[in-house]
């Protein structure tokens, strides 16, 4: 599904290298967790994969289902099935959440040569998914992320993911700012989307989220590289020992 080889990325304006030869391979149906300390390059990885401006790829490749991701615009990546759940979802004043979902879904369907959904078809699709995530009709009428609480923002992100049905989901610090109840709702939403033809990359600081979204593979990231890979038990080990030894080893 996702293949990253020897990826080197630097910041366009200051020239500092953030990713220093990162290699990662995620197969369909798998959930990979990427853990690591602040500043290890986790968020940069998610932004570069989704196509945010301001980064320069100096070496390496990243492909989605064999297709070169790095040559595509962010919207083209979305249409190919990539979805990034933002750590800090962005406000779009005046655009109702419901409208945003519909415009996004139909833009992707159009790009893929599929028929756009009519209003009733779309409403049916959203209704169930919103209910599962505790997203009320009232919330869907509000402008995207405007005045949303931390929990509401994250639930709205997962709802977007559920509606857009991506092939590769990248969750960037989805647990940050969530209390335990909100975390459970979000995790259930994510688990409901686990499927044999869908892969997920869960980026997190803490092991806590991985109690709810149990990964198949855990990676430790430090200083712009994957420095260790293991099973789900690796997360517990990190929780106990911390990242210090990896940071030192990577420097």
């Amino acid at each position: 599904m996702l293949d990253i080889k020897n990826l080197h990325v630097k910041l366009e304006d200051e020239g500092r290298e953030i990713l220093k030869g990162l290699t990662l391979s995620v197969k369909p149906g798998e959930v990979h967790a990427i853990m690591g300390p602040n500043g290890s390059g986790k968020s940069t990885l998610s932004y570069v994969l989704a196509g945010r401006e301001g980064y320069e790829v100096t070496d390496g490749t990243a492909t989605l289902k064999g297709e070169d991701l790095l040559a595509l615009e962010p919207n083209e990546r979305a249409a190919k099935g990539l979805f990034l759940a933002f750590q800090y979802p962005i406000e779009i004043p005046g655009v109702a959440t419901m409208q945003f979902l519909k415009v996004a879904l139909n833009a992707q369907r159009k790009a893929r040569g599929e028929k756009e959904l009519s209003v009733p078809e779309f409403m049916r699709l959203v209704k169930d998914k919103a209910q599962q995530l505790n997203v009320t009709q009232e919330m869907l009428k509000r402008p995207v992320n405007v005045g949303f609480s931390g929990g509401e923002k994250k639930r709205a992100e997962i709802l977007q993911m559920a509606v857009l049905e991506p092939k590769l989901c990248i969750l960037d610090e989805t647990d940050s700012g969530l209390d335990i109840d909100a975390l459970r709702v979000v995790a259930e939403g994510v688990n409901a989307l686990r499927a044999p033809d869908r892969a997920m990359v869960v980026i997190t600081h803490y092991q806590r989220l991985l109690d709810y979204i149990v990964p198949d593979v855990v990676h430790v990231m430090a200083n712009g590289r994957i420095v260790r890979t293991g099973g789900k038990e690796l997360a517990r080990e990190l929780e106990a020992k911390g990242y210090a030894e990896y940071v030192e080893a990577a420097e």
């Binding site: 196509g51 979305a78 779009i92 996004a104």
Partner: peptide, 18 residues
């Protein structure tokens, strides 16, 4: 903002649509 543009485009809208 660039953040708004990136967010909306990452959901599938082209630059002009965004």
């Amino acid at each position: 903002s660039d953040d708004q543009m990136f967010y909306v485009m990452s959901r599938g809208l082209s630059e002009e649509e965004a």
